[in-house]
């Protein structure tokens, strides 16, 4: 099936099989491997992307369902070579160890800060509860989101 999508601001069209999942489309067809495949059962959140403004797990959406949609992946956050404040927060506050969960965590944090620019710690923990970190570095991730919140609302 023919689909047209805007990925990180770039309009593109592709021909894909109906059963192809959005995450596989992004990684294997578009070539953006920043979005990770973790559990593939919508549990871990590593595959989170923004689809028309909502963070969703891209392992649980068909690529063809994204026809006409705007998608933002982790690659779309930095602008002109400058890290997004959330990415900077993860850098400054050691928000990652192995880094596998990071793209999904950052997308979840991005959605959280869009909806609630000044979250408290409980809000942040609730905002990222759809994402698992196997290194269990949650405290640093919370710190990173707080860093970004401060920077973005200054």
């Amino acid at each position: 099936m023919k689909i047209e999508v805007t990925v990180n601001g770039e309009h593109q069209s592709y021909d894909v099989e109906p059963r192809m999942l959005l995450v596989h489309f992004l990684r294997e067809v578009v070539g953006l491997t920043g979005t990770h495949v973790g559990c593939e059962t919508s549990l871990c959140g590593a595959c989170s992307v923004m689809l028309n403004g909502d963070a969703v797990k891209s392992c649980t959406v068909l690529a063809v369902q994204a026809d006409g949609a705007e998608i933002t992946t982790i690659e779309g956050l930095a602008q002109n070579g400058e890290l997004h404040p959330i990415q900077e927060g993860f850098w400054e506050c050691h928000g990652l160890q192995c880094g596998f969960c990071t793209p999904g965590m950052i997308i979840a944090a991005h959605q959280l800060l869009e909806r609630n620019p000044k979250p408290n710690e409980a809000d942040i923990r609730r905002g990222i509860e759809g994402n698992l970190c196997r290194c269990t570095g949650y405290q640093h991730i919370v710190d990173a989101v707080q860093y970004a919140s401060k920077k973005m609302t200054r």
Partner: peptide
């Protein structure tokens, strides 16, 4: 229900 991303979808 579930988690934020799942409630979005």
């Amino acid at each position: 229900v579930a988690s934020p991303q799942i409630r979005n979808a």
